[in-house]
């Protein structure tokens, strides 16, 4: 899966740390503490079970186990896990919301070309003969 970014370092805002302001960078970020403000990442944002984020977020994937409030953009996917709670406005390439997760707010799809109705044929076209 793309969700667990295999490349790049992952920074950690540990449980007792509070950041108020702007976080930006090329890497992944795991938040177990609190962040208020804005987060812009080339990599993924992972909000751990103890993490509380109240911010405007832009990241590749956003995975929520804790609480995320704000306006977010997940360039690939937004995932709210079972104990996770999202509240706000989100735009994402795709969504995964697990059973038990809380999602309150607005969701928009990033890729408008993937509309419902444009279904792919289930049967693959016959192979061309040589």
């Amino acid at each position: 899966m793309v969700k667990e970014a295999a490349s790049g370092t992952t920074s950690l805002v540990s449980r007792q740390i509070v950041v108020e302001g702007e976080i930006s960078g090329e890497e992944n970020l795991h938040v177990d503490g609190r962040v208020k403000g804005s987060i812009r990442l080339a990599g993924d944002l992972f909000v751990g079970a103890n993490g509380v984020v109240e911010a405007e977020v832009e990241a590749r994937n956003i995975v929520i186990q804790g609480v995320l409030t704000g306006k977010v953009l997940a360039r690939v996917q937004l995932e709210v896990q079972t104990a996770g709670c999202f509240n706000g406005e989100s735009t994402a390439g795709s969504y995964e919301i697990r059973d038990g997760a809380v999602f309150e707010g607005i969701s928009k799809m990033l890729n408008r070309s993937r509309r419902p109705g444009k279904l792919q044929p289930i049967v693959s076209p016959p192979e061309t003969q040589k």
Binding site: I17, V18, V19, E20, G21, I23, E26
Partner: peptide, 9 residues
């Protein structure tokens, strides 16, 4: 490659 601007406590 991470920058933090603001307050850390």
């Amino acid at each position: 490659k991470l920058g933090v601007k603001g307050k850390i406590s």
